[in-house]
């Protein structure tokens, strides 16, 4: 059975926000991800980590949501970092060239540290 789609918003002590996604991101589930990410940004977040550690599939619809979030955050002098350890998902980022656009790290701690480097003090 495919993994259940679960979204978790985990505010961090330093004002950063982590959105952890378990399961598959596609046309059916991407709207929920978009809603959560948009809400977090509208509520004032400038540093967001999208944790895909437990994500088992990502298509272009999901990439579109991530791009939209990145653009919104950058317009507010913010940043978005991605945690990914899945080879197939990494390949999807690479094929589309989006691995050059996103800050992608292999752990949540590394991604949070990357936000600190990307966001102006």
């Amino acid at each position: 059975m495919p993994a259940e789609f679960i979204l978790r918003h985990e505010p961090q002590a330093n004002g950063r926000h982590v959105i952890a996604v378990a399961g598959e991101i596609d046309l059916y589930t991407a709207p929920d991800l978009k809603q959560t990410l948009t809400q977090v940004i509208e509520d004032g977040a400038t540093g967001v980590v999208m944790d895909l550690t437990d994500t088992t599939f990502l298509d272009s619809t999901g990439l579109g949501v991530l791009i939209g979030g990145l653009k919104r955050l950058r317009s507010r002098d913010g940043a978005l970092a991605v945690v990914n350890v899945d080879e197939s998902i990494a390949r999807t980022f690479e094929i589309t060239g989006l691995d050059q656009i996103f800050t992608i790290r292999s752990s949540r701690d590394e991604a949070l540290a990357a936000l600190d480097a990307d966001i102006p003090a």
């Binding site: 596609d26 046309l27 599939f57 298509d59 272009s60 619809t61 080879e87 197939s88 390949r91 999807t92």
Partner: peptide
């Protein structure tokens, strides 16, 4: 192979989408 299976699943997903 895992990579081929992943490629097929993604391509089919994109076409169905």
């Amino acid at each position: 192979p895992d990579q081929l299976a992943a490629d097929i699943k993604l391509a089919v997903t994109e076409a169905c989408t």
